[in-house]
Design a protein around this nucleic acid. Structure first.
Lengths: 146, 146
DNA sequence: GGATCTGATTAGAACTATTCTAATTCTTCT
DNA sequence: AGAAGAATTAGAATAGTTCTAATCAGATCC
């Protein structure tokens, strides 16, 4: 069975020593904790810098290894905007990503209730969609200065 | 005004010497022609190899430059699947991409008539979407062996 | 028609995100 | 504790892409 958002810890405090079949080592906990505690879609480099604050010996290679393990075990989603460095997201709800071009910030966006994306698409008969990535870019209204 | 599919040549034979504000030099014509003539979403490397057949002096850097110019002038779309090498697509109709995981082949997929993707999304009030990329991966039924 | 100016092309070096390698260190199991 | 397997580490390597500096081509001006 697949891990869903409800199975997953909400902060770094709550990480068990095994999750979704993945042994949570000290470094994996640290990396996962970084993602859980500040949900701002950091890059591997960002994660590395944050993890280092609490675990100065951690290496960038380990951060990449841990992220790969977490993504491989579906605990974390890898988010790609064009060819920019990958970003990482611990939200397992089905969602897509919107980037505010003014600030660079990335927001999770969910589908409206009952909406099925593939209903909208004119897909060849019988295709089975395994994976889907949708990224949006644009501007937020919050930049109005009242 | 923006260039649309109906303004655009359908084969390499028909490329004018200026298009969408972009001066079509010999190399740009060649690169664009490669994309128009075989619409299989080639990588920059693929384009380079094909262009070289007819213009042996062309360099990879020029291919990248030309692709960048074409993308910048909205004559070509850049397609990214995860962090795989970018692919290039001369189809200017609104569409998304589906990759058959068995063959690696990429297909253009259009929305059903009247379908508006952003209607499905629970976007924060007032956001203006400027750009959107949707990629799907899965399997085609054609691989059944009757 | 030649000089000049701007922009395009070229080869190769440089860059950057990521992956790999080999050695070391942890865990876990007995 | 000792052995076996997995994870971590530092650093090297890789791959796609971008940059740099030099040359070249095309348009413009006289």
């Amino acid at each position: 069975m697949e891990i869903t958002q409800s199975d997953v810890p909400h902060t770094s405090e709550e990480i068990p020593s095994e999750l979704g079949g993945l042994r949570m080592t000290k470094q994996r906990k640290e990396v996962y904790g970084v993602l859980l505690d500040v949900r701002d879609h950091p890059t591997a480099q960002d994660v590395f810098l944050r993890a280092k604050e609490r675990m100065p010996s951690i290496s960038l290679a380990t951060v990449y290894n841990c992220l790969e393990a977490l993504v491989g075990h579906q605990l974390v989603k890898q988010v790609n905007f064009d060819r920019a460095p990958s970003r990482y997201c611990p939200n397992l709800e089905e969602h897509v990503h919107f980037q505010d071009e003014a600030t660079g910030e990335i927001y999770d966006v969910v589908f409206k209730a009952g909406a099925e994306l593939t209903d909208l698409l004119d897909l060849p008969e019988g295709v089975e969609v395994r994976d889907l990535e949708l990224t949006l870019k644009g501007t937020m209204p919050s930049s109005r200065n009242d």
